[in-house]
Design a protein around this nucleic acid. Structure first.
Lengths: 182, 182
DNA sequence: TCAATGGCTGCGAAATCCGTAGAGTTCCGT
DNA sequence: ACGGAACTCTACGGATTTCGCAGCCATTGA
């Protein structure tokens, strides 16, 4: 259960004449409930990716819509879970000085293990993968002791975890939140 | 050059009587320029992690500060780059249906390669690591063809890239933006 | 054809944002 | 110890934004 046949949206800023067609997110047409987004909603998201607090009127001016229309669309996008507007921080600044990516190999049901790891607050990011790891997990810790405890005590203790391999972060070079825009 | 002797801030939610001490982020005391955050700023960030558009007055009421004070602190946090307030989306919804983590081994200067990969728009996340990979790179693509091109043509073509190993995402289980809070 | 639905616009009222002035602290150097 | 500089907080009025709602128009489907 993946893959879908949604028409790929044009991410080209030039074609704005097709702007006034096709409802924004009417049909939830992909099986995971993800609605298809039109160019205007994409443009709104793009605005909010630059500044999550940008006023609706300013966004409306940028995308060619009234303030109220932008407000309604944003509310719908939030309600649908298509996007969320949040503060993101640099972990180092906030007191978490050790991060690592951990590759996990599983015996038995991978999703069960994934759920168990997702329940741990130190696991920031959990994804099931194809390749030499079944799971990749990003963990965020306060110091080396904390990191050691999480990896060697908590993660390895989860039933079904066969082995792990750790990649301690030395330096974060890039991190964007520009999905859907370039 | 790493490690530092900054007094570790108390992450304990209980001690709120120390709330009115020590300037928020005066001294940029860690060598990477990251300011030390006090409990109030942490609380503000926590509020904005729940809702990036929450009004300053509401935040002030929650953390025990006036509206203007919250506004000034938020502005400073943004200016300092400690946090940013942005819209984050589900890549699948926005038309990117293939994601992968790629482990990279490098010959020569790792940072040079990291910079080159960071310049690629498909690379969402680039981090230098210790372990059997020198770099971990998360890439976001529209479809399989796009993914193949990025991995086999673009990434491998970067001078200094010795080898890569790919982990195609099957299912994203968890993704939080709650750094610094739980 | 007609009713229902969904999206957009245009208001007025309420709430929020913004700039700034003034006061209280801490931290220097003299 | 005495100023002064640098910070941060509060208070407050005006500009801006948000919010709710009524009306209009296009599309859809019976």
């Amino acid at each position: 259960m993946h893959s879908e046949l949604v028409a790929p949206r044009s991410a080209d800023p030039r074609d704005s004449q097709d702007t006034r067609e096709s409802r924004p997110g009417s049909r939830t047409d992909s099986r995971n409930g993800a609605p298809h987004l039109d160019a205007v909603s994409l443009a709104i998201i793009e605005q909010l990716q630059e500044d999550g607090r940008r006023p609706y009127a300013a966004i409306g001016k940028a995308v060619g819509l009234s303030e109220a229309a932008v407000r309604q669309r944003v509310q719908k996008l939030l309600d649908q879970g298509v996007m969320q507007i949040v503060a993101v921080t640099d972990p180092l600044t906030v007191g978490f000085r050790r991060q690592a990516m951990v590759g996990v190999n599983v015996e038995g049901d991978v999703e069960t293990v994934a759920d168990a790891l997702s329940a741990m607050s130190e696991c920031e990011y959990v994804v099931m993968t194809a390749g030499s790891f079944d799971l990749m997990v990003e963990i965020v810790c306060e110091d080396d002791d904390h990191l050691l405890e999480v990896i060697n005590k908590r993660i390895r203790a989860v039933p079904g975890v066969r082995s792990t391999e750790s990649f301690v972060y030395l330096k974060l070079k890039k991190q964007t939140y520009m999905w859907g825009t370039r």
